[in-house]
Structures are given as C-alpha cells and as structure tokens.
C-alpha cells in the first residue's frame, strides 16, 4: 500500500451569511494515498467544492489539520493543480502559451514538456489556436495540461466536465484515466454524476449536507479500463445511488430546502 499523501483530520469550516452561521463542513477525516483516484460526490450544499478549495489553499479560516506530504497547506500553489468547472484559460493566449503561462516557451525544457503535454491531452495541431476556437472539452484539456506542466503532487478537479455534453464527457473521462495511468498523479475529483464517480475512482467519498460530513466511502475494486455496462459496475453504481438516495429522505424529514 502506497504512503499517505494527503491527510485531513477533523476539518470543519463555517461561513457567516446573512441568515447566520452556516457550517459547510463538520469534522471531516480523510486519508488519501499517493497515486489514488478519489471522487467526491454528494447533493448540492454538501460542501464538496469547499472541501476541494480548502485542499487547494484557495479557502482558509477552517479548523482541523490538513497536510500534503506532511506539510501544512498554507495557500494555493503549483503543487496542488486545480481544474475549475470552467476552463479559465486566458483568452488572449494561444493553447501552448496558456499551458506555459508564466513560463517561457523559449526555454527548451519548457518547450519539450509543453509539446509532450499537448500530445498527452491529444491537442496536436492546436498549439497556435486561441481559446475561442476550441470546444469545451478541448479547452478543459488545455487547462489540465496547464496544471500538469507544473508537476503537481495532487490534481484537484472541481466538476470539470459538468458543462460538457454526454459524449464529450465520456471521452474526457477516458482522456483523464489515460493521463492518470501514465503520470500516476493523485486525483481528487468532485462531481455530482454517479456514473462518473464510479467509473473513475478507486474510492468514492459520499458527502452528506448540512453540515457537510462524510457519510460513506465506497471502494471501487473494478479493474481499469472499466465498462459502464457490466453488472459489477451497475451493482456498485446502485450501491452509491442508494446511499445518496437515503440522504434525500433524510433531508425531507429535516424539512430543509435546497
């Protein structure tokens, strides 16, 4: 078993809103091993994005401890690659310059790695294209390449394929698994799509809302590449679905609104 890369202990986070204090996360404990693919799923308001943003160092003011490779997380940085729901490319830069961003393509080392990554995310021929000329899936692949160029310890993905159509989404899942297989980068992937969560992950983390807490962690012991039509896949999918469904009932009895 690989070593622990990310350790989250008793993580709580609250926001002050007009209606008072809202607890977004309540005593979350999670251990993620080097090279693991974790998906986080849960209904809206369960704090899954907040959890990811705290790991990224984008959100602060939480209680509990959270360490990456034994170091406390003090702020955002290139060791924690982040893929947003929207691609967030710079529209004034070409694909290759977006990937390089603050690094110079005249540096032969950067040039070589950028070319490799363009190959990895299958965008050969689009090096000089501008974001406006790309489809949603292509743009998101550029964003992934931009993060990977910096050799992150962990790649954090916040519903990155949420805005894509079903075919492109399935294609992107294959691309991401391909990247994971080759680079063995640890992935934490937030989604609200059950199929996606089960298809990608070693472990599916199910969060329950109000306050955000881990309800279950479902290990997915299917070999890769996976096939969504097999009965073993469907069984696990059903298990996750049932666990999520029970959250819905809980919510109704609580009388809480979305």
């Amino acid at each position: 078993m690989a070593e622990t890369l990310l350790n989250i202990t008793a993580l709580s986070k609250s926001f002050d809103t007009a209606k008072g204090r809202v607890e977004a996360l309540h005593k979350v404990d999670l251990n993620i091993r080097e090279g693991e693919f974790i998906t986080v799923i849960g209904p809206s308001g369960c704090g899954k994005s907040t959890l990811l943003r705290i790991i990224a160092g984008l959100d602060g003011q939480y209680s509990g401890t959270i360490t990456l490779a034994g170091q406390n997380i003090t702020g955002p940085g290139i060791d924690k690659g982040f893929i947003f729901q929207e691609h967030r490319l710079f529209p004034w830069l070409t694909v290759e310059k977006n990937i390089a961003a603050d690094l110079s393509l005249r540096d032969p080392e950067v040039r070589r790695k950028v070319d490799e990554l363009i190959e990895l995310v299958k965008l050969g021929g689009f090096e000089k294209a501008y974001p406006k000329e790309l489809s949603g899936g292509m743009a998101q692949r550029v964003a992934i390449a931009r993060a990977l160029l910096r050799n992150p310890r962990v790649l954090l993905l916040d519903e990155p394929f949420g805005a894509l159509d079903a075919f492109t989404r399935a294609h992107m899942q294959d691309v991401l698994l391909d990247i994971w297989r080759r680079n063995q980068t640890t992935m934490i992937f937030v989604t609200h799509d059950i199929d996606e969560a089960v298809f990608l992950a070693n472990r599916v983390v199910i969060l329950k809302p109000r306050p955000g807490q881990i309800k279950n962690i479902v290990p997915i012991d299917l070999p890769y590449p996976r096939k969504k039509t097999t009965s073993s896949f469907q069984e696990l999918r059903l298990r996750v679905l049932k666990l999520l469904d029970s959250l819905d009932e809980l919510e109704l009895t609580d009388g809480a609104g979305i």
Binding site: A56, L58, G75, P76, G77, I78, K80, G81, F82, F84, R88, F90, A101, D102, R146, A147, R150
Partner: peptide, 9 residues
C-alpha cells in the same frame, strides 16, 4: 483569473 494566478503562483 486572479484565482488562476494564485494557483499558478
């Protein structure tokens, strides 16, 4: 974009 700038240091 500033958030991206923070993530990219």
């Amino acid at each position: 974009w500033f958030e991206v700038g923070r993530v990219l240091e």
